[in-house]
Amino acid sequence: MPLRNESPAGILGRMVEPLPQTPEGVELRHLRAFVAVAEELNFGRAAQRLYVTQPALSRTVRGLEKLVGCDLFHRNTRSVSLTPAGAALLDRTRDVLTDLDAALTAARSAGGALSARMGQLWSPVEETFNGELAPMRSAFELMHAEFPMPEGIRLEPVNAGGVPGIQLVPAEDFDTTVVYAHGGGFMMGSAYGYRGMAGAVAQAGRARVLVPEYRLAPEHPFPAARDDVVTAYRWLLNTDTEPEQIALVGDSTGAMLLLSVLVRARDDGLPLPRATVLLCPAVDFYAPEDDPPADVEQHMRFQNAYLAGRSASDPEANPLCADLSGLPPTLVQSGEFDGLGRNTDVLVARLAAAGNTVRHDIFGVDGHAFQIYWSFHPEAADAVQQVGEFLQKPAPLTA
């Protein structure tokens, strides 16, 4: 029996036999067009409301009627009214659109909250860029202190052939050892400060992760950092660790540094590691003939400190100018809206043109080296998990 005061549309709705599934081809534009006409009962006003032409709106509604299999409106030259089928569809369609709008609002809100949290963590660092070196380094360390180490990862000090550092060791057995080069513009960052990010790679990849404490500019310009990481890599090779068990991972300028390490190791005749992972590689040295990057003054401060008078096109210091042939298979991750990643596509193209296997994954994230936010950002966590899967493969994934 019908409920008291129940609308005809509600009665009809209860009588309708449900379809096994929504007809293929029904799109959101069909539903929004239908609701606009049903509420206005005038195609001209509904078209103005949706910012479309009246003929286009009529075609959309006709298309929906064909997909549903019945007329939704009575039309004549003077009026438009809902058919019983249209009345049955209207209430449910309103609910669908309301729920969808609420879902999109929640997604935007969550995305905005994540971006805001990333910005709150990064802003105190950026505010120090035009000031003294010590506060800049302290702010960078304080930011990284906010990131946790995953549970079950053991931290140990290590001396890698005279280069101090730490290693992160998972509880379970591991077959891969990672050399991790941290970011920080060649002027900031530390092995201990990066324990959270390195620990996440250790957990995701079920790998031991060695983080060398390479020397920083401006006190120690190029090639000090590169030579320290090469020394740590040589030490690994001399401790019964096979090159097939070694992978290199680095973020931002650490990724750029690893490319210089690989070129030096290759030219010195060392066996190369099994794979390389470059997280938001900052391969964007600026030369006078180039278009200036964003925040060019800050950019030049880091670049000049590292190069110490060397040319920005020096192939030893700038991997984009080096011979990149014969390097290990490489996974590159970047953020779609990362202003510091302007030359990532160039790097990927040059690696591929040199005959290397390279895969480039782009994430819709607004932030440089976004992977460091893995503990609260879902896309960053997914990116780290993909790094882990890449490291666990007996043979790295192909492009």
Rank of each mutant, 00 (worst) to 15 (best):
W122Y: 09
S123C: 02
S123H: 07
S123I: 06
P124H: 14
P124Q: 08
V125I: 12
V125F: 11
V125G: 03
E126S: 13
E127P: 00
E127Q: 10
T128S: 10
F129Y: 12
F129M: 08
N130L: 06
N130F: 12
N130M: 13
N130I: 03
N130A: 12
G131V: 02
G131Q: 09
G131I: 07
E132V: 03
E132R: 15
E132P: 00
E132N: 10
E132G: 10
L133N: 10
L133F: 06
L133Q: 13
A134S: 11
A134Q: 14
A134M: 09
P135I: 02
P135Q: 06
M136T: 02
M136L: 11
S138P: 01
S138H: 14
S138N: 13
A139Q: 14
A139D: 04
A139W: 08
A139R: 15
F140G: 06
E141H: 03
E141R: 04
L142W: 00
L142V: 07
L142K: 15
L142S: 08
M143W: 05
M143P: 04
M143S: 03
H144F: 14
H144E: 07
A145Q: 15
A145G: 08
A145P: 08
E146I: 01
F147D: 04
P148C: 11
P148A: 08
M149L: 13
P150K: 15
P150G: 05
P150H: 00
P150T: 06
P150R: 12
E151Q: 15
E151M: 13
E151G: 14
G152P: 15
G152E: 06
G152R: 14
G152M: 14
G152Y: 15
